[in-house]
Design a protein around this nucleic acid. Structure first.
Ligand code: MG
Ligand code: MG
Length: 411
DNA sequence: TCTGGGGTCCTAGGACCC
DNA sequence: TCTGGGGTCCTAGGACCC
C-alpha cells in the first residue's frame, strides 16, 4: 500500500543450514539443532513433519536418521553478520528484525541497481556464493506483504508480488499467515467463521474490535487490505536484555533457585556491561508445572547492571512471584529493561541570552524525555530555550526538576 | 514422555501530576 | 456526595515472533 518496494530477506532453516556448511557431511541430510526441543530443522528433516519447537525425542521418532547437533551460536552470529553486510551493499535502508531476517527499502536503489526483482536475484546469488546459505526473498509494496511473500517463497525462492494483483493474492491466503495472528487469534477468527484473509478483510472492523480488542481489530483489518505504513527503521536499539532457564521437572529449593538466578543474573549483567548498558527496571518470570506463569517487576531509583544487584532484585521478588501458586518452578527468567547507555547523559539548557545552566540529567536514550523537558522549560520561562545533551552522569529526573527550579529562581 | 531461549508489542488499572 | 480530563509511569498478564 505504501507503494515503496520492500524486500524481506529470510535465511532458510538458518541454524541448520549453517551446521550443514560447517560440517559438509551433513549436507543433504536431516539435521536438527537443539537440545530438549528442536530449535531449527533442515528442510530434509521437515519432510518428515518435523518443525520447531518440537520435542527432540518425538522428532527422532519421526526421523530416526536425523543428526542432532546442540548448536553453535557464536557461528550463527558470525554468519548473520556476514549476510547483513552483503545486504548493506544494496542499500543502507536496512532493518534487521532477527538474527536471520531483514527488510530492505530499495526505492532509492532502483536507479542504480535495477528493479527490485533484479536486486533480489543478485542478493540471493551473492549470499549463496559468499556464505553458502540459501536465502528466500519476498518483494512487495509494504513490509507486511514482503514478509508474507518471503514465507511463500521458501525454500530457497524469490516471490515478487505485483501491486496490481497483491490484494487478490493476499485474500486467498489463510489468516494464519498474517504476521501477528498466532494460535489464539486464529482460533477466535475460526470461531467466527473467518478462515481466509479475504474473509477477514470483508469483516466490519467494529466486529473485529469486539472479538479481538479495538487495537488488534483495527490493525488486522488494515493488514488484510495491505495497509501497512510502517517504514523500514534503520536505527533500532534493544529494549531489554534477559535470560531464562528451563528447570526440567521443576525446582522448589530456594537455595537451588538462588543458584540458578545468580547464573542468569551474571549472564544478563555481563552482557549489559559488555554493551555499556544500564537498566532501570527488572522483571522476574516464573513458570509452574501447569505452564501458567507469573511475573513481578521492580524499578530502581537509578539504573544499574551489576550481577549482585540483579541477583538481589530477583531474590527479593521470588517469594511474591510464587505466592499465588504452589509447587515447583519449571522455568525462571529475568530481564532488564528501560535501558540506557552507561555513563548516560547530562542535560544543559541555554536561555536565549546565551546563558547556559546545568539542568540535571536524564537516561541516555530517552530523547523524547529530553524534548519534553525542553518544552516545559520554554513554558516556564516564556522565551526560547535550547536543550543540549552530553554524556556525563546518569541521575534521576528529580535532578532535572531541581535544575529548572534553580534556573527559575535565578531568573 | 509436551513445549528452549532470545525478544517485541499491546492492554488495562492505579498512582500521580497538571 | 459522588466527582472532569489528559498524560505518563508503573506493574501484571498475554499474544506473538524467530
Ligand atoms: Mg529464516
Ligand atoms: Mg527468521
Amino acid at each position: 500500500m505504501s507503494g515503496t518496494p520492500i524486500l524481506h530477506c529470510d535465511l532458510d532453516a538458518f541454524y541448520a543450514s549453517v551446521e550443514q556448511i560447517l560440517d559438509p557431511s551433513l549436507a543433504g541430510r536431516p539435521v536438527l539443532v537443539g537440545g530438549g526441543v528442536v530449535v531449527a530443522a533442515s528442510y530434509e528433516a521437515r519432510a518428515f513433519g518435523i518443525s520447531a519447537p518440537m520435542n527432540v525425542r518425538r522428532a527422532l521418532e519421526r526421523c530416526p536418521d536425523a543428526v542432532v547437533v546442540s548448536g553453535s551460536f557464536g557461528e550463527y552470529s558470525d554468519y548473520s553478520d556476514r549476510v547483513m553486510e552483503i545486504l548493506r551493499d544494496f542499500t543502507p535502508l536496512l532493518e534487521q528484525i532477527s538474527i536471520d531476517e531483514a527488510f530492505l527499502d530499495v526505492s532509492g536503489s532502483i536507479h542504480l541497481l535495477g528493479t527490485p526483482a533484479d536486486i533480489a536475484r543478485e542478493i540471493r546469488r551473492r549470499v549463496k556464493a559468499e556464505t553458502g546459505l540459501p536465502i528466500s526473498i519476498g518483494v512487495a509494496s509494504s513490509k507486511f506483504l514482503a514478509k508474507v511473500a518471503s514465507a511463500a517463497a521458501k525454500p530457497d525462492g524469490l516471490l515478487v508480488v505485483d501491486p496490481s494483483d497483491e490484494i487478490a493474492w493476499l485474500h486467498s491466503l489463510p489468516v494464519r499467515v498474517i504476521w501477528g495472528i498466532g494460535p489464539v487469534t486464529e482460533r477466535k477468527l475460526h470461531d467466527h467463521g473467518i478462515q481466509t484473509v479475504g474473509e477477514l478483510a470483508a469483516t466490519p472492523v467494529d466486529a473485529l474490535g469486539r472479538w479481538l480488542g479495538p487495537g488488534a481489530g483495527h490493525h488486522l483489518h488494515a493488514l488484510a487490505w495491505n495497509r501497512d505504513p510502517r517504514p523500514v527503521q534503520t536505527t533500532r536499539r534493544a529494549k531489554s536484555i534477559g535470560a531464562q532457564s528451563a528447570l526440567g521437572r521443576g525446582l522448589t529449593d530456594p537455595e537451588e533457585l538462588s543458584g540458578v538466578l545468580l547464573h542468569l543474573a551474571d549472564r544478563v549483567g555481563t552482557r549489559m556491561r559488555k554493551k555499556h548498558k544500564v537498566g532501570k527496571t527488572f522483571t522476574l518470570r516464573v513458570r509452574f508445572e501447569d505452564m501458567t506463569s507469573a511475573t513481578r517487576a521492580t524499578t530502581f531509583d537509578a539504573p544499574l547492571n551489576t550481577t549482585a544487584a540483579i541477583h538481589r532484585a530477583a531474590m527479593t521478588l521470588l517469594d511474591d512471584a510464587r505466592s499465588d501458586h504452589d509447587g515447583p518452578l519449571t522455568l525462571v527468567g529475568i530481564a532488564m529493561s528501560k535501558l540506557a547507555d552507561e555513563g548516560a547523559i547530562q542535560m544543559e539548557l541555554a536561555l536565549d541570552d546565551g546563558d547556559v545552566s546545568h539542568a540535571g540529567s536524564v537516561a541516555a536514550d530517552h530523547q523524547s524525555e529530553i524534548d519534553r523537558q525542553i518544552d516545559r522549560a520554554r513554558e516556564r520561562f516564556g522565551r526560547d530555550v535550547v536543550g543540549r545533551a552530553s554524556d556525563l552522569l546518569n541521575k534521576d529526573r528529580r535532578r532535572v526538576d531541581d535544575g529548572f527550579r534553580k534556573l527559575a529562581e535565578r531568573d
